[in-house]
Amino acid sequence: MKTATITPLHILSRTAAALLGGYCFVWGFTTLGIALAVTLGMSFGEARTLSYLLAFLLFTAVFCWAFATASLGRAWLLLAGGGAVMTLLGWLLAN
């Protein structure tokens, strides 16, 4: 993508993908991570602490990635979509 084609709308969407999409992805990671760890025998408290420790490192990485990747559509799909799928899987696993 060239500099000339960066519109305010594109920046807004990119920011939303990084912040909200990234949040959704991290939420999914935390949910699925805890559910998986609990299934594998870790205590809930321990699994939650571990997920929290990793969550913000992951958020930093996906936030940067959302700005680095060429396709904005892919950023939205992977972050928001991936987050939703992981949340659903985690919820199914835990209930």
């Binding site: 991290v26 939420w27 935390t30 949910t31 805890i34 559910a35 609990v38 809930f44 939650r48 997920s51 929290y52 969550a55 949340t87 985690g90 919820w91 835990a94 209930n95």
Partner: peptide
């Protein structure tokens, strides 16, 4: 920031 135990994972929590 991530209240998963109070929302989607209330059962195991």
């Amino acid at each position: 920031y991530l209240p998963v135990g109070e929302t989607v994972l209330t059962t195991p929590a």
